[in-house]
Each structure stands twice: as structure tokens, then as C-alpha cells.
């Protein structure tokens, strides 16, 4: 895989989860949580912008961040399925944020030592933000899991909903970029990720769900039914007014 393709995967994970998370704006359970989720979405959007800009430059076809975000069809998006899943209720939203930010934390920690200086800089900056997201999700997981019967039921159900999509995070890709010290081998992230997540689940009185893995394929541009409507909304303005700027 090309460097541009690898960077696009990193960018699209952040962009698509930023879009999903921002759907909570003005709808979160409390005002404080509304602000928290909006801030998390903004951090991810910021990471996505730097990565999209870099992917466009590496590709060398003259595409900037807007061209990549607004003018690509679903089949050219390289994000994992986990980030495109509908939010569901707050329990599922938190379950997704927990497993995703724990994964991205492990990834960015290692990517900060990448032989590619741009990736290293974006990662070193982003990991500080993702550490905060991970902590926020972990606190809610414990609060909901160890809370009322209903909050515990919903947190457990949300976790079972997102868990089948976690193996895709650790699927091998871009062996040449890993060998060159540019990319991080996703397989190596699985163990530290599980150690962190299962620690949080233990504190929450929850267990790792025993569910089969979903097929995956996001990194190859194969997406779930949820991706089309997400892009319809994300790209609606540019489809109606191509090249619009403000």
C-alpha cells in the first residue's frame, strides 16, 4: 500500500467518527456531556484535517483536504466499520468511544516515533487529545456499568454491539511501510489494547463480550449500509454547491 493510502486510513477513521460524534450536539443527556462530545469530535476533526492534507500532498494529484472529505465516494473511504456504525443510545456511543480511543491511543503512541516526520508530529499532538477521550469514555463506562440496573444493561448491550467490529482494527496491512518504520503494525496493538479495555470493564463490573467478529473490509473501501447516509449528510453542501467555500 502507498503512504497516501495508509495516511488516508488514519484520516478517515478520525473524520468519520468526528461526524458521528457531532450528531450528539444539542442532543446529549446533559449539557456538560454535549460540550464534551462536541469537543471530542472537534479534536478528531482537527487530526483528520492534518492527515487529509498530508494524504493529498503525498498522492500528488492536487487534492486538498476538502476534495478528499467532500468529493470521494464511499468506496474510496478507508475507515474501519467501527467508526461508521450509527451511534445508537448513549451506552453504545460510549462503548464505541472506549474501544476506539483505546485503540487510537496505542496507535498514536507508537506512531509518534514514526520515521515519517509529518506522521510523527500529528501523532505526538493527537495522542494527548486521545488520552483525554479514552479517559472520558472509561469514566462513563464505569459509571454506567456500575450504576443502575438499566444503565448496566445498556452499557453491556452497547459493548456487545460494537465488539464484533474491533478485530478489524488489528488486521495486518502495509507490511512494507511497517518494515520501513513509517507505519505501525496493527497486530501489535491488540494485546495492550485488550489489557486496557478489559481493565476498565473489570472496574465497571462488565465482561469482554463473547461475540463473533464482523467481516470487516473498510480499509479496502467496502463499507456497511450506514456509510452511505453518513456521507450524504457530510457531503450534502458540496454536492449542492460544488466547490463552495466560506
Amino acid at each position: 500500500m502507498s503512504l497516501a493510502g495508509y495516511v488516508l486510513g488514519l484520516a478517515d477513521d478520525a473524520l468519520v467518527l468526528a461526524q458521528r460524534t457531532s450528531e450528539w450536539t444539542a442532543r446529549a443527556p446533559t449539557l456538560e456531556e454535549d460540550v464534551a462530545l462536541a469537543n471530542i469530535a472537534l479534536d478528531l476533526l482537527g487530526q483528520a484535517r492534518y492527515l487529509l492534507t498530508y494524504a493529498g500532498a503525498e498522492e500528488g494529484a492536487g487534492r486538498d483536504e476538502d476534495a478528499l472529505a467532500y468529493r470521494r465516494p464511499s468506496s474510496e473511504f478507508r475507515n474501519v466499520h467501527l467508526v461508521e456504525l450509527p451511534n445508537g443510545d448513549f451506552g453504545r456511543t460510549i462503548a464505541r468511544l472506549l474501544v476506539f480511543s483505546a485503540y487510537r491511543y496505542e496507535l498514536l503512541t507508537r506512531l509518534a516515533d514514526s520515521a515519517d516526520p509529518t506522521l510523527a508530529a500529528v501523532a505526538a499532538k493527537g495522542v494527548k487529545e486521545v488520552a483525554y477521550h479514552r479517559d472520558h469514555a472509561a469514566q462513563w463506562t464505569v459509571r454506567l456499568g456500575a450504576g443502575t440496573t438499566e444503565s448496566r444493561r445498556r452499557m453491556g448491550a452497547g459493548l456487545a454491539d460494537v465488539w464484533p467490529y474491533t478485530p478489524e482494527l488489528f488486521t495486518e496491512e502495509s507490511a512494507a511501510l511497517v518494515a520501513a518504520g513509517v507505519a505501525v503494525d496493527p497486530v501489535s496493538l491488540s494485546e495492550p489494547w485488550l489489557a486496557f479495555v478489559s481493565g476498565v470493564l473489570t472496574s465497571a463490573g462488565l465482561v469482554v463480550p463473547d461475540v463473533a467478529a464482523a467481516p470487516g473490509g473498510g480499509r479496502r473501501g467496502v463499507h456497511t449500509d450506514a456509510m452511505g447516509p453518513l456521507l450524504d449528510e457530510l457531503q450534502s453542501l458540496h454536492r449542492a454547491h460544488p466547490g463552495a467555500v466560506w
Binding site: E32, V35, I40, L42
Partner: peptide
């Protein structure tokens, strides 16, 4: 601390 996030990313409430 009443909220870990506030009006801008760099602030908490």
C-alpha cells in the same frame, strides 16, 4: 471539576 470539557478544547468547567 464539574465537566472535563468546556467552551473551548483547552478548558474544563
Amino acid at each position: 471539576e464539574s465537566s472535563r470539557f468546556s467552551g473551548t478544547p483547552c478548558r474544563a468547567l
